[in-house]
Computed example of a mutant assay.
Amino acid sequence: MNAARSTAALSLLLLLAGCSAPAGTGPEAAPAPATTSATGAPADPTDAAWAQLMTPMNEQAVALLTLAGQRTADPRVRRWAAGLRTAQNGELARLRPLLARMGLPDTNVHEGHDMPGMVTEPDLERARAAEGRAFDRVLMTLVREHLSQSAQVSRSEAKSGTRPDARRLATALVSARTAELAALDLLPGPSEAAG
């Protein structure tokens, strides 16, 4: 991938993720990805940005999904949330070693950024304050946003990334998100949850 295409792909990934500018170009911009991998080869910025975004997105989603065991009103939602939490943890088990192979830290470089699809601490506080059907509405809204946005940025990585291992994982995540969104559509909707 040439430098111009790599820069365009990185800009697209950051735009899709809700980061308005590359590192160092604005007060709220994401920190720059590491410039070398564990092998000393230059790290592709698109691959690095994707892995550094997907990891905290999944971590925050897992924190939300964990609350469903005690807060949901519907056993179908509880089962679905438990299955999705297991799947998200499985993805994290693949994302963290990928970060290590790229020589990137396993830290949330997007902390404090208001990004589409990222479950935030205020979101978690709102979920902790809700119970029953109110919790179900919060859960389903936030998870739908997470699944949709993570699918979108993973499509970008699958198309524009350069690392075969990152592209394979991104492709797998896109397929998983399609199935997860279909499963979400089978759960009671907001109008049913309100009743």
Rank of each mutant, 00 (worst) to 15 (best):
E91Y: 09
T178C: 00
S175K: 13
A158Y: 05
T36K: 15
G132I: 15
S150H: 13
R5P: 03
E145W: 07
L99G: 00
V143S: 00
L92M: 01
M57N: 03
H110T: 14
A170L: 08
P75H: 14
P105W: 01
D44T: 05
R71V: 08
D106G: 05
A81K: 03
D74T: 15
R137N: 05
T141E: 13
L173Q: 13
E59D: 09
R167I: 00
S37K: 15
S156W: 02
S156Y: 03
N2K: 13
T171K: 14
P122E: 12
G90Q: 04
A166E: 08
A9M: 10
A176F: 08
L186T: 09
A182I: 02
A32P: 07
R137W: 10
A9D: 11
R78Q: 11
G103W: 11
L181M: 07
E125S: 04
G132V: 12
R155C: 00
G117F: 12
R101N: 01
A134N: 12
V109W: 05
M118H: 15
A32W: 14
E28C: 00
T107W: 06
G24P: 04
L184C: 02
E125D: 07
G26Y: 14
A134M: 02
T141R: 15
S154C: 07
S6A: 14
R71W: 07
P22T: 10
P45I: 08
A30L: 06
A23N: 06
S154M: 05
L186E: 13
T171S: 04
L147W: 12
R79V: 06
L187K: 03
E125T: 15
G69L: 12
F135G: 01
A8D: 11
P190F: 12
A182R: 12
H110I: 06
R167T: 02
W50R: 03
L64W: 06
R76A: 12
A41P: 01
L99D: 05
P22K: 10
V143G: 00
A73Y: 03
R78M: 07
P42S: 15
A127P: 05
D106Q: 02
L15M: 03
A130I: 08
Q70N: 10
L169Q: 00
E91N: 08
A87L: 11
P31E: 11
T120E: 01
R163F: 03
E180N: 11
L173R: 15
